[in-house]
């Protein structure tokens, strides 16, 4: 069992497993949508008094905050107990492209050249982590959902607006990858 869990999972196992999470939440009477938690936290810390958008009963969304708490614990458990000893099998084309941007591929999940405190405290690091976070928060609330809410839940329910949102995800992602990354990392 542990051995199975420790292998990297093929995408055709992971995809249905993600749909399974959506299924558990549906049968619990809830909707799978992670980014709603960003609003829930804003409401929880009392911002509803100042901004009407956060003026809702966050306690009704408490289940989602518990789900968030679990996801943090799950990340801890996964790396400490089910970690794969093998390096990530990234496409050689991606490895070569990132090399040109001075981001060496180290076989881990996240590039250690970028994911560290020293890099964070550079102007570029600030833009990447703080700016990137800001865009995630602003964008997901504007679009009313993120990958879980639109790409998984919305598309599974054949919602056309979710398709617009997912196309938007790619417009923004391609813009950043092909136009911003050469400026940021070179």
């Amino acid at each position: 069992m542990i051995k199975f869990f420790s292998q990297p999972w093929p995408w055709y196992i992971s995809g249905p497993a993600i749909a399974g999470i959506m299924g558990i939440l549906i049968f619990s009477g809830k909707t799978f949508g992670f980014s709603a938690n960003l609003s829930n936290i804003c409401s929880m810390i009392g911002l509803g008094k100042r901004v009407t958008y956060f003026n809702f009963d966050w306690k009704r969304q408490q289940w989602n905050l518990w789900f968030l708490t679990g996801s943090v614990i799950g990340g801890y458990i996964a790396v400490h107990f089910f970690s794969s000893p093998d390096p990530l099998t990234l496409s050689t084309a991606t490895v070569a492209d990132l090399q040109k941007l001075n981001i060496p591929f180290d076989g881990k999940l996240e590039p250690s050249a970028v994911f560290n405190w020293d890099y964070l405290f550079t102007g570029k690091g600030m833009f990447l982590f703080l700016g990137g976070g800001f865009l995630i928060g602003f964008g997901t609330r504007y679009a009313g959902g993120c990958t879980s809410g639109h790409a998984i839940t919305g598309l599974s329910n054949l919602q056309l607006p979710s398709l617009f949102a997912v196309i938007g995800f790619f417009v923004g992602g391609l813009f950043t990858t092909y136009l911003l990354f050469p400026i940021i990392f070179k």
């Binding site: 990340g75 996964a78 995630i136 504007y142 993120c146």
Partner: peptide, 29 residues
Amino acid sequence: KYAIGGSIFGMGWALTGACPGPVFVLLGQ
């Protein structure tokens, strides 16, 4: 709003390499 908001989120997704769920999973890691 889906197209505009989605595009803004997409930029953040590419920059950090994480959507909202993974941000918290990575914190746990």
